[in-house]
Nucleic acid binder design. Structure first.
Lengths: 239, 239
DNA sequence: TTCATCGGTTGTTCTATATCAATGACAATC
DNA sequence: GATTGTCATTGATATAGAACAACCGATGAA
């Protein structure tokens, strides 16, 4: 009944129903006596490969990590984007089911499997994280199974806007006359394509289309200025 | 830090890396004193709707339940199929993120949220279940994002064959000269389509194609005889 | 026995997105 | 400041799967 390691979780929902974690410049998880080790990753450095032995779990202190799976012919699907406050590395079996690779410079908190499985507080925290990731995954499943290219990209952009587009979306704040925001993609077009189940060309074309319609302004490829958040939200297929 | 209810889990991996649960004609989860209630569902009876208050979790004793989400224009995506030994009903927020509907006559074990959050054993069990579901979801994400219609249907069929197609697949057992099996779909073509991100017509055509190639025999729509499991496995895109 | 219903199949046409190919815009290196 | 490499954009064309439509076969009621 017990060969217990893990394979994924998030404390804050990031992705579709975003709610960012402004304060956490250090671990949000309950501390564990021994294994309080930190680890750094450079952009595109691999933390672990699918199939590696899973004996540690990680919390993202800062930066962004992607989890992906490859098909034998090279097709790639990014299955989850792990952001500040999220966790990764859980597995039911004793091996990782995905590859984890940093998108940006990243700092991680490392927890040893043994520490985790003996700490009820940690268990409980992980549990909460898992539930949050599960909801994001469900949402992403709908995106991949049923949404058009335009809807996918719009949903992706909304996922980068904190506290908007989710269930409790309040709309634009009353005071401010504007409803704009600049979001950092921290992903290449290829990575976005592999996340959204599209090709790089389709992603590029949809972004150009949004540009032409005056919905967004692209600033050095990695940063997009959304001129009216509600307008993008209307394109997600959820309204 | 604590408004704790849940939203999903599975004790056995069902779907891609299958490993069926032959014995469990009763709950596999640790028993909880008070809330040991059972519940029956008729085919296509809804257990709960997306948005309903989430205060119970369920274990499937027998039968099959689907979890799905709807877009406002009626597009549906089935995000998970819950089978014998699996659990459902978890949520991080206090509402369900999916609708749960029985595919077949179903018997459930019902656990009250309060019982769950106070039982460490239950917590631990749920945790294991969540990890298993997470892996299935990752696998399904690859299917929806990157696989062709034929690969999707082949993967779906393999998911109905216990102990085959997974990481530790042993291939056909040495003794037996044959490598066939009859699987029950317990889903209509429409439901399969909504699970695989296809249309009903495409599902039907792919099944007909497999029939024409002599890979399968269809018996009264709901039951498919796979003549050579390895042959189907070769079509999943994972070899 | 007829009729209606429901789920499934098959044919035709259409279209969104993939694929293939060329060009552009930087940034890094020599 | 030329050269190279990487990533992105744009155009032309192909195609897998969607959409629309007709039909089929089993079931069940009148």
């Amino acid at each position: 009944m017990d060969n217990l390691t893990y394979s994924q979780a998030s404390s804050k929902t990031v992705g579709n129903e975003t709610s960012f974690n402004e304060e956490s410049m250090h671990s949000a998880a309950p501390s564990v006596k021994n294994g309080a080790r930190k680890q750094q990753l450079k952009p595109h450095e691999v933390l672990f490969f699918e199939g590696d032995k899973a004996d540690k779990i990680y919390e993202v202190i800062s930066g962004v990590v992607m989890l992906y799976k490859l098909l034998p012919d090279g097709r790639r699907q990014i299955v989850y984007i792990v952001r500040e406050g999220d966790m990764l590395g859980f597995s039911q079996r004793d091996i990782f089911d995905c590859t984890a690779e940093a998108l940006t410079k990243t700092e991680l908190q490392v927890y040893e499997g043994r520490d985790v499985s003996t700490s009820p507080l940690m268990q409980h925290y992980i549990n909460r994280c898992l539930l949050s990731q599960m909801e994001s995954l469900h949402e992403h499943t709908v995106l991949l199974g049923r949404k058009s290219a335009m809807e996918r990209v719009a949903t992706f952009l909304m996922g980068l806007v904190p506290n908007r587009g989710g269930v409790g979306c309040t709309g634009p704040s009353k005071e401010a006359g504007t409803d704009d925001r600049t979001v950092m993609l921290s992903m290449t077009r290829q990575e976005i394509a592999d996340y959204l189940g599209l090709t790089i060309e389709t992603v590029s074309r949809v972004i150009s289309q949004m540009k032409r319609k005056g919905l967004i302004k692209v600033e050095k490829h990695d940063s997009i200025h959304i001129l009216n958040i509600c307008n993008i939200c209307q394109l997600t297929g959820m309204h």
